[in-house]
């Protein structure tokens, strides 16, 4: 799929989202960050599935970025 072998997936648990505008907000804010390849946020499952560049980011940094947005986030997988 052309994605370099530096990419990996992680699942971040995200508490505090109540509607789709929170989901879109997280996806657009985190989506543009350096090292984020893709992010899908699920309101129902209260989690974010993130594909990231391992040479730039790690799961706990991603969780902190979401936490800085005012949601309660921690690495799930």
């Amino acid at each position: 799929t052309g994605v370099n072998n530096f990419s990996s997936d992680t699942v971040i648990s995200v508490e505090g989202m109540t509607c789709n505008s929170c989901v879109r907000n997280i996806e657009s804010t985190i989506g543009i960050k350096d090292g984020i390849i893709s992010i899908v946020v699920s309101l129902e499952k209260k989690e974010a599935e993130v594909t990231y560049n391992t040479s730039v980011l790690d799961p706990s940094t991603i969780a902190t970025m979401i936490d800085d947005m005012g949601f309660v986030a921690f690495v799930k997988a």
């Binding site: 505090g16 989202m17 109540t18 509607c19 505008s21 929170c22 907000n25 947005m69 005012g70 949601f71 309660v72």
Partner: peptide, 10 residues
């Protein structure tokens, strides 16, 4: 929404 105001508060 309320989720947004909670996020600001947090």
């Amino acid at each position: 929404c309320e989720g947004c105001s909670n996020a600001v508060k947090r």
